[in-house]
């Protein structure tokens, strides 16, 4: 149990081992540990972010669906409206057309009636003149009493 030079040799060896450990062992292993800690923290943060984004996406999906539903309803309503409009228009057109045809027919009828009346009147005038000629063959000159005959015919 002698204290001797061994003590100092051990002291020096201790110093050397500590120095080597400090220079070559500790830094790389600590670096690896710290980097892994940072990586794990990053991963956890990314997972959290992903979760949030997923929630946001779900919310957005619900909104988009709602929007789509309401716009579809709009489209249906608009189509309904347009259908009604077209129906009304067609009805109006048909009425107008019927009116027009009716007018045309009436005008034609009137024309026909007028023509018939004119013809009747002319024939009546001729008939009256012929009758009057027969009655007044000698006393009345057709040309002299023409205005009387005409005013008579006009009254028919």
């Amino acid at each position: 149990m002698n204290i001797n030079l061994t003590l100092f040799v051990q002291m020096i060896a201790f110093g050397v081992f500590v120095a080597f450990c400090m220079k070559y062992v500790w830094p790389p292993i600590m670096k690896a540990l710290e980097e892994r800690t940072a990586k794990i923290a990053e991963g956890l943060a990314a997972a959290e972010r992903g979760k949030q984004e997923q929630e946001l996406g779900e919310q957005r999906a619900v909104e988009v669906m709602k929007e789509a539903k309401s716009s579809a309803q709009d489209v249906v309503a608009q189509a309904q409206k347009r259908y009604n409009e077209i129906l009304d228009e067609a009805k109006r057109d048909a009425q107008a057309e019927a009116e027009r045809i009716r007018h045309a027919a009436q005008a034609e009828i009137e024309q026909e009636a007028n023509r018939a009346r004119e013809e009747l009147r002319e024939r009546m005038a001729h008939l009256a003149i012929a009758a009057a000629e027969k009655i007044l063959q000698r006393e009345v000159d057709a040309t002299a009493h023409k205005d009387i005959v005409e005013s008579f015919a006009q009254q028919i």
């Binding site: 149990m1 204290i3 061994t6 003590l7 040799v9 051990q10 002291m11 201790f14 110093g15």
Partner: peptide
């Protein structure tokens, strides 16, 4: 060996 333990403790 006390030399070894003292070597370290004195360091």
């Amino acid at each position: 060996d006390p030399n070894i333990t003292f070597g370290m403790s004195i360091a």
